[in-house]
Design a protein around this nucleic acid. Structure first.
Lengths: 152, 152
DNA sequence: TTCTCGCCCATTGACGCCCATATAAACCCA
DNA sequence: TGGGTTTATATGGGCGTCAATGGGCGAGAA
């Protein structure tokens, strides 16, 4: 399970350490980590092999004429990168992903339960502040139903 | 499992390197790679021997597919090219396939789970942008076939 | 012969692996 | 409880290896 927030640096060679807690949650280190752009935010989605395998399973192997639903899975797979760890647990994000999330020399890993997101620190700060404010204005009604909470 | 995107060059002799990750996923190198034109897109479909063998099996076992699907299987087989690797893992695409996908001096391999596609970079860029936009507008509500759903 | 295709070699640029250091959290002991 | 020590994670840089690319040679087909 991915919980909490971790801010790490991207060095000159483009390497980014995946937080130890997340590496453990991802499972088999040999599988690395699977990252794809978020559809809705200038951020990246990260998950383990099991999560991606569900997308693969949703594409019927022999069906050559995919419907809209399949297209969604296909789009995710086309934009997903299987990133391998170096011996220290770092990965290199390809340029397409760096661009999508507007990442510079720092990245923040945000736990989201079954997977996590990767944000530019500045973008996340404003996004988080707005989400927090939104949550607060509706807080009274959401509080009892939603066990999730936004980190302070 | 075919995941992600890899853009490679087509040299003057028409040779195209199959990405190492895909060669591994294809299995036995002696079998090479099987490529046929996509019926839905100006692109090519690529797969391993196991994938083609299932089409062959569908022709033998009449119960397996409907008549329409059976015709489709026959059409696929008729248009499939078995391409052998050179010692460096490259293949040469026949002219019919080059024409169908409007390939010039570059080609992008796009993972699709159990198989992959080969696109002209420019054609794929527009195709992917559209699919991505569609996912953005509808992704939040589209459930995945199995369990989880795509998240905002 | 001439052209095509399969095999071999050279180059290069990226990335995977190794080591060293810094930073921080956990631990231990008075 | 506080200070120092230890352990582990994160970071930075050097170097070797391998994948991708490009060109040349030779065997066999047209």
């Amino acid at each position: 399970m991915f919980i909490g927030r971790h801010t790490n640096k991207i060095d000159k060679k483009g390497r980014l350490s995946v937080p130890k807690a997340f590496r453990d949650a991802l499972g088999d280190a040999a599988d690395g980590v699977f990252v794809f752009p978020s559809f809705k935010y200038p951020a990246l989605e990260g998950a383990g092999r099991d999560f991606i395998e569900r997308f693969v399973a949703s594409l019927d192997d022999l069906d050559l004429f995919s419907d809209d639903q399949d297209d969604l899975a296909a789009t995710v797979l086309a934009n997903t990168n299987a990133l391998a760890y170096d011996p220290e647990g770092r990965v290199i994000l390809p340029k397409t992903l760096l661009d999508h999330a507007e990442l510079g020399d720092e990245a923040v890993f945000v736990g989201r339960g079954s997977r996590f997101q990767i944000w530019s620190p500045t973008l996340f700060e404003t996004h988080n502040a707005r989400a927090f404010e939104r949550a607060r204005s509706r807080g009274a009604t959401l509080a009892l139903r939603n066990t999730d909470k936004i980190e302070p």
